[in-house]
């Protein structure tokens, strides 16, 4: 599957984070909605994998939005405009508007960051971090963890099947669940620790702890222009946020 890739991952991640910051700074539902419609939706559609990203956003944000709507829509003791009285629960206009504000913020937050993360190529990000001279231990931990996650999930599935073949049935009580969790996690952790100790020796033999600058197999896709663009984006966001937050205080 071909993916849209115009900018360096670092630039895209920074742009996503700054957009989230702007939404937090402005803190109005109109702005959040505008960002959602004008930035997030086009970005998802043009990402080259709109279906996967749309599904991921729905899976991550959907339950949160629904539960937040239920929480603030039904239980908002500060609300005074009661739309419906249901005994202990009261539907209030203030609660609904608060749920809408938070819901829009959460949608932008999920949409922007997930689009950036899901179009991101982790090896490219790690290569950029190496080229920019980030701490090599950080690069190792991040890269290794991202690579390990599917491995851990696969191993957990295999161990679960093996234990089921030996007669593991997950009961309903909390103790039975705890026991089921342990029968899967214990062999999982032991296996992973054995792997880790082997990796420890291999890294040691390959000079992992030496402090010289690192090189990367992958070419540097970062450009001086993008480096400048990142600084400009940071500066503009910082100036705008300061102005937006301080002006109302100064002018009263």
């Amino acid at each position: 599957m071909r993916r849209r890739r115009i900018y360096n991952p670092l630039t895209e991640l920074l742009a996503a984070v700054l957009l989230v910051v702007l939404v937090l700074v402005v803190n109005r539902w109109e702005f959040s909605l505008a960002v959602l419609v004008l930035v997030v939706v086009p970005a998802v559609v043009s990402s080259g994998r709109p279906r996967q990203i749309g599904l991921a956003v729905a899976v991550v944000a959907g339950p949160l939005l629904l539960s937040s709507l239920l929480l603030h829509g039904l239980f908002y003791p500060e609300g005074s405009t009661v739309l419906a009285d249901l005994g202990p629960a009261r539907v209030t206009a203030e609660g609904l508007s608060f749920a809408a504000l938070m819901g829009l913020r959460m949608s932008v937050f999920t949409g922007v960051l997930l689009t950036a993360a899901m179009t991101l190529e982790v090896p490219e990000l790690l290569a950029t971090m190496t080229h920019r001279g980030w701490n090599r231990k950080l690069v190792f931990v991040v890269g290794s963890a991202v690579g390990l996650i599917p491995h851990v999930a696969l191993r957990a599935r295999q161990i679960t099947r093996a234990q089921q073949a030996r007669g593991l049935v997950v009961g309903r009580g909390p103790l039975a669940r705890l026991r089921a969790l342990l029968t899967v996690t214990t062999p999982l952790v032991i296996g992973l620790l054995v792997d880790a100790s082997e990796r420890n020796h291999m890294l040691g033999a390959r000079g992992f702890s030496s402090t010289v600058a690192r090189t990367s197999y992958l070419p540097d896709t970062d450009t001086p222009g993008q480096r400048i663009a990142r600084r400009v984006m940071l500066a503009v966001t910082a100036v705008f946020s300061t102005a937006w937050l301080i002006l109302p205080v100064v002018t009263g």
Binding site: V141, R199, L203
Partner: peptide
């Protein structure tokens, strides 16, 4: 080397 393992376990 054990930190990525912990991270992957947390997330999974």
């Amino acid at each position: 080397v054990v930190m990525p393992l912990g991270i992957a376990l947390n997330i999974a």
